[in-house]
Amino acid sequence: MLRTTVEKSINRDYPKLSGSWDFRIAGRGFTSLQGDEVGWHLNIQEGFCIMHIETEQHGEMSCQIDANEEMDHYVGTLRYRIFEVGFISGSSVGAVRAQFRAICEMTDAGGMVRNGIIMTGYHNRAFNGDVLRVDGEIIGEWASDDEEWCHFTAVDTVEVTLSAPSPWMLHDSIATWMNCDGDTTEAYQTSA
């Protein structure tokens, strides 16, 4: 059953791929699938079936694309160098690849990706720009003032939501704010 599911997925997304597949039991609830041509890996752990598809590379950014057979979608793990900076997902490998390319275009233009959030204008001396989740949702904008304090204003608000003494600290504050569902008590407060 599992082999059939995996083969259907591989044949659907990569119709020219062929070869023999070897299943090995490596412990309780864990199985791996290794192909003799491409080096595919299938890991089943506690009911989840994750199969590594490919790793896209762009400069120091990479995106490891895995298939989640349980949820029938693909997940990309974003990394800058060795640091995990976010996750993206899509209905196909091509959709995840396109999201990764769009993120790379933003970083090439001076954006910074950390904690699943992109701040445009970060490395290009603009010191202002949009703030987006890695899935493309715009959550606000940021700007630096004359005293070099950085301020974030969330979408649909006119007042500054968060402030911090540097873009790096503002990035952390926005991530904390997002994880707290917009509750600013856990993040850096706006300056008075």
Rank of each mutant, 00 (worst) to 15 (best):
G47V: 14
L78Q: 05
A67P: 00
W168K: 08
E84D: 11
G110P: 00
E84N: 12
I88K: 06
T55V: 03
W142N: 00
Y14G: 01
G35R: 12
D13W: 11
G35K: 13
R28E: 14
M106T: 00
R97M: 12
W177V: 10
S144W: 06
A26G: 09
G86Y: 06
D66H: 04
I88A: 05
M112T: 04
P165G: 08
P167L: 06
G140K: 04
S32L: 11
T4A: 13
T4W: 02
F152L: 02
S163V: 04
D183F: 11
G116H: 08
I174F: 00
R3H: 08
Y14C: 03
G136P: 01
H151A: 11
A154K: 08
T176K: 04
Y80V: 01
L33Q: 01
A192I: 15
A143R: 13
G140D: 08
C63R: 03
S191E: 13
M106E: 07
S173I: 07
S9K: 13
W168M: 06
P167R: 10
R79W: 07
V160T: 15
I25L: 15
L2F: 11
S191V: 14
V134E: 10
F152T: 01
P165R: 15
P167H: 05
R97L: 13
D145M: 07
F87W: 15
C49K: 11
E186T: 05
E159Y: 11
I118F: 01
M1I: 14
A187I: 13
V160C: 10
I138R: 14
N43P: 03
L2V: 07
L33S: 02
S18Q: 15
L33W: 12
N128F: 09
G121F: 10
D145E: 06
F100N: 09
V134G: 02
E186K: 13
H41T: 12
Y188W: 13
R28I: 03
W168D: 04
T185I: 15
Q57P: 00
D172T: 05
D66R: 00
R101L: 13
P15G: 13
V113H: 06
T120N: 09
D156W: 11
I139C: 04
G35W: 05
G111H: 02
S32I: 12
W149T: 03
D13M: 05
N11S: 15
V131G: 02
T5I: 14
T184G: 01
M169G: 00
E84S: 11
N11V: 15
S9F: 08
A175L: 05
Q34H: 12
S62M: 02
P165A: 11
C63S: 06
G136T: 11
F152E: 01
E105T: 09
N179G: 01
E54I: 06
L2Q: 10
S166M: 04
E69F: 13
